[in-house]
Computed example of a mutant assay.
Amino acid sequence: MPETPSTDATVWDSRYRSAAEAGGREWAAEPHGELRRIAGDLTPGRALDLACGDGRNAAWLVRRGWSVTAVDFSAAALELARSHAPEGVEWVHADVTTWQPDGEYDLITITYLQLPAPAMRSVLARASGWLAPGGTLLVISHDVENLAAGAPGPKNPAVLHTPELLREAVDGLRVVTAERFRRDTVADPEHPGDHATEAIDTVLIAVN
């Protein structure tokens, strides 16, 4: 991601179009390892992928039998996602900071939505209210400790997160995990082309 992730959809449109023209993807093709670990143990139901990017997580979920709604504010990202994903994903072109769903979900996943703390708290608080009884919220963010580690990701601490930030934003849910997670970028590359061997994520798992 750029040093300060842009909230301008046209910037992301340009990045995703460039990736598509190069015949590749902006991010890794495989879903995030923590998503595979957590969702792999859940009974498929209705899932929401917020800030879905080019759809790698949504595509994996629908292949696992989930009914998936995937939301992103970049039209180019969704175009690229449709080219990679199987049928069965509902792609929604909308800003996740203001979008409102029409029902509840058994799983909500948010991966690397690097917003400043007030906006991130708002997104998480709203998403918490969209979980069905027994539903799971999974949030994966670049952690602020990434800076000292020299790991890939944003260099602006204002858009990096901590376990405490994510935990406090989901008041009302039962927090299963809110912790830092060291990710091997060689074995599970989220950022093709980066040379750091380890990244530090913040991971939240909460249940309604």
Rank of each mutant, 00 (worst) to 15 (best):
D143G: 08
M120L: 15
L137I: 07
L124S: 06
P157F: 12
A119L: 14
D201R: 11
L80R: 09
A28P: 04
V89F: 04
N146D: 14
R15K: 13
P133F: 12
L50Q: 12
D171W: 03
S141D: 14
V92F: 01
I38K: 04
T177M: 02
M120N: 14
E198K: 01
G45T: 05
A178E: 12
A196K: 05
A132E: 08
E104W: 04
R121A: 11
A94N: 02
D194C: 07
V11A: 06
A47R: 02
D188E: 14
E198Q: 05
A178L: 12
L115S: 06
W91Q: 08
L61H: 10
V186I: 11
T97Q: 12
P163K: 13
K155M: 14
G150A: 01
T185S: 09
R25N: 09
G172A: 07
V144S: 15
G23D: 13
E21A: 15
A132H: 06
R25W: 07
E190N: 10
A76I: 00
E190P: 02
V62M: 01
R180F: 01
L80V: 05
G24D: 03
L42P: 06
L204V: 09
G193D: 10
A76T: 00
N57P: 06
E190A: 14
L35G: 01
D49K: 05
W130Q: 04
N156P: 04
A77C: 02
V203P: 11
M1L: 08
D72R: 00
P101A: 03
M1H: 13
A9N: 02
A149I: 00
Y16G: 06
A70E: 04
W60P: 00
A77R: 04
D188T: 10
R15M: 04
M1D: 10
E145T: 04
L137R: 11
G172R: 06
E30R: 15
A94L: 02
G172S: 09
V71I: 07
D201C: 06
P31W: 05
T10Q: 14
T10L: 14
D184W: 03
A81M: 12
D171C: 02
R56W: 12
A158I: 02
T109I: 10
A22M: 02
W66A: 04
H195M: 04
L124F: 09
L80A: 15
R180V: 01
G24R: 06
R126H: 13
V96S: 11
H195S: 14
T97K: 01
P154H: 14
F181G: 00
R174P: 00
R25M: 05
D201E: 15
L78D: 00
T177N: 03
P152Y: 01
G88F: 06
